[in-house]
Amino acid sequence: MAVANNDLEKVIIQSVMEELAKKGLLSQKGKDHMMSAAMMDMPFVPNPQSEEMVTFPPQEEMQIDNPFNADAVRAMKKLTPARIGIGRAGTRPKTMSLLRFLADHAVAQDAVFLDVSDEFLQRMNLMAVQSSAGSKDEFLQRPELGRRLSEEAARKIAEKCEKNVQVQILIVDGLSSSAIEANIPDLLPALMQGLKSSGIKVGAPFFIKNGRVWVQDHVASIVNCDVVISLIGERPGLGTAESLSAYMIYRPDENTVEADRTVISNIHKGGIPPAEAGAHLTDVIKQILSAKASGVKLNQQK
């Protein structure tokens, strides 16, 4: 709209000036003057097609003015992911530090509170079911709801999933939908390839919304598998919102405790990369299958 209005304005000014000039009421000099005045009034016109944009400076950039030993500060920044060497404005953080913090927190909150997209689930060809937590608020405030499937989910799994397989893979949003979208496309094919080429019988992986770790016990009771593995989003930190964990358990029952689960955490591009994690998890699952045990019981057998 702004562009159209301005164009119109220019046309009007120009035609008025031309009329004045025709009538000899305007010197050439005056014409220039009036034109430039009109130009100055024109606001800057944004160009939405431009590639220019504002971004954060690189994280490793040293932000301290006149440090005693700049190399030392740079080296220290390499030694820890902590926010150090970031300088200050008076006692407060610099503008970029403040905004980066806000951005990291925003990404973390979005990872927790937004859902895995339907488009993603379709692209990965994953059936989707839900825990008994109806909303994110309920999921966060009532942990027990995320540990059970909804009645509809239980029905759907009983109906559609293959029974008595060796391994059932679950993709569970947990506390980070972003972790799912970032890692599953590389982790899942690597894991499937590893298990299949080892001759292990695997059920079709599916997705559980608003789920917690324990929901795997409920699934295992329906599909009757040897090992159930949940690939679940970890609680985001400000450093990354994309970290994923794998929880595995051998034949869970009502006496199952936390220590019976084998856990591999910190799966993301800055930790163990997802494709490599898929290959590593294959080995771990093979160990669990041959030991017929997981968690502490597995470690004791090693």
Binding site: G194, S197, P273, A275, E276, G278, A279, T282, D283
Partner: peptide
């Protein structure tokens, strides 16, 4: 860091 998956 992808030796294992490349081997696989």
């Amino acid at each position: 860091d992808c030796g294992k998956v490349l081997g696989q």
